[in-house]
Nucleic acid binder design. Structure first.
Length: 111
DNA sequence: GCCATGACTGGGT
DNA sequence: TACCCAGCCATGG
């Protein structure tokens, strides 16, 4: 289960595996699903994540710089930061503090 | 079926 | 250290 449903679905699965208070990068997810370099697609999938029936912690997905590059996809530009702070993630200037400290590496999805 | 775009990444200048 | 270019994969027109 949980695969062959499409590239986006794989992304959602990995993102949903992200523990609260932790964050990851698009490239990490892309590599986890076996499509390194498709980081752009991961971000795009996040946009559709809001259209998904299940909640996807897209706010826990940042770029390699730990910056909230996807905040614009949220209802409000501050929503992403609020969600992260709500989970104990310190955010400042649209960037996560001790990003490498809270970085969570997704496991490779079995295909 | 081809071209353009996108919440990325890494390397080079 | 900052900016630019090329590579990468998938979707939409």
């Amino acid at each position: 289960m949980s695969n062959n449903e499409g590239f986006f679905n794989k992304v959602y699965e990995v993102v949903k595996l992200i523990p609260s208070g932790r964050v990851t990068t698009y490239g990490a997810i892309a590599s986890a699903i076996g499509s390194p370099g498709a980081g752009r697609m991961v971000g795009w999938a996040m946009n559709k994540a809001f259209s998904q029936p299940c909640f996807v912690p897209a706010h826990r997905v940042l770029n390699r710089n730990g910056q909230l590059t996807g905040k614009h996809a949220f209802p409000n530009a501050d929503t992403m930061q609020e969600l992260l702070e709500s989970e104990g993630v310190e955010v400042e200037n649209d960037k996560v503090k001790n990003f490498e400290n809270i970085f969570w590496k997704p496991e490779r999805v079995v295909d």
